[in-house]
């Protein structure tokens, strides 16, 4: 007979070992994967991307900014830059570093893959918003241009990523930068968010947490050097100016502006009716198509019909059919506020 205590201990050790290997985020497997990440090629591609972003935004790039962006030492950064020069992807001069046409094309290929992958994750999977950028940072180094083209074709050749960034075409075309940072909006003016910068991650996750997304309508309430207060889809949001700089807007012209607070479908009590104004941009991909197929489009009348025992989901009468929706979906359907 095997000693029960000994085998119990062995059993626990095996379980602990498996947890140690497979733990998400901190496990051995994940760490092994991560340590492989900083290979030579990844550093080269990431620095090209950084240099291209500087160029696109009209900023001068330096050795230090490369080091900072890639979180490597200045010493390593100089090695990478030297390597890039050898490959004739960049030229350095007294004002800083700039890309050669080959370098620019290379950078655009990586950016295209990155943004396509973000769009794919947003529309076709249920990966959380805060993980898109991180996942794309990894995958962009492993997909060939041909695979990227196939992916683009599969998801309908999108031209914008979910953050509102334009996706370079297969030939490397990109439109000129549009819009201004949120800070420039004057008091009382209306605008639409066209882009939310996804780097650095800390600021991006704050902006996501505040509920901001491209396509949202904003109206400036107060803009000072300490804080920026504005209405986003009718809800009041306060940001530090540093954070607001990561939000790009374009002024709205000739469009009906939405006055006051938005009302979401989930705010209806049983028996109440409302007219759909639109579906939030945060509701994407399959879920969005499903709602539209059911007839949730502007102008549709919806009545809250009954609650389930737990209060969530709630059944709504939409175009003659009873459809149960969960609260987090009904939150993303806006109604006209009468």
């Amino acid at each position: 007979m095997v000693d029960p205590l000994a085998s119990l201990i062995v059993g626990f050790i095996i379980i602990l070992f498996l947890i140690w290997v497979y733990l998400p985020r901190k496990g051995l497997l994940v760490r092994l994967k991560r340590s492989k990440k900083n290979t030579h090629r990844v550093l080269i591609e990431d620095s090209l991307k950084h240099l291209y972003n500087c160029e696109y935004n009209g900023i001068n790039c330096t050795l230090n900014s490369v080091a900072g962006n890639l979180s490597i030492s200045a010493d390593e950064a100089s090695k990478v830059v030297k390597k890039l020069e050898e490959l004739e992807l960049i030229t350095s001069h007294e004002r800083g570093i700039s890309l050669t046409p080959e370098g620019r094309a290379y950078a655009l290929r990586i950016i295209r893959t990155h943004r396509l992958w973000e769009k794919y994750l947003a529309d076709e999977t249920s990966v959380g918003e805060e993980d898109w950028h991180i996942a794309a940072e990894e995958i962009e180094h492993h997909i060939t241009p041909a695979q990227a083209d196939a992916l683009a074709a599969q998801i309908g050749n999108p031209v914008f990523d979910p953050h509102g960034d334009p996706i370079p075409s297969a030939k490397g075309d990109l439109p000129v930068k549009k819009g201004n940072v949120l800070n420039t909006l004057k008091m009382g003016e209306f605008a639409r968010i066209i882009h939310i910068e996804d780097e650095p991650h800390a600021i991006y996750s704050q902006l996501v947490a505040a509920g901001l997304y491209p396509g949202m309508q904003v109206r400036m309430m107060e803009s000072s050097k300490d804080r920026i207060k504005f209405l986003a889809n009718g809800e009041e949001v306060v940001l530090a100016p540093l954070f607001a700089k990561n939000v790009t807007i374009t002024p709205i012209k000739n469009e009906t502006t939405v006055k006051g607070k938005f009302k979401s479908l989930s705010s209806l009590s049983v028996g109440e009716k409302g007219i759909v104004l639109g579906i939030s941009k945060r509701c994407r991909g399959q879920q969005r198509r499903r709602l539209m197929d059911l007839g949730v489009v502007p102008g549709t009348e919806i009545e809250a019909e009954m609650k389930s025992i737990g209060g969530d989901p709630v059944a709504y009468r939409i175009r003659g059919a009873s459809i149960a929706l969960r609260k987090n979906q009904a939150d993303k359907i806006y109604l006209i506020n009468e």
């Binding site: 249920s126 991909g285 879920q287 459809i323 979906q329």
Partner: peptide
């Protein structure tokens, strides 16, 4: 975690 997910439930008469 990443598989596509959507919810709707029809309650027929």
């Amino acid at each position: 975690k990443g598989e596509a997910s959507a919810f709707s439930l029809e309650l027929p008469p």
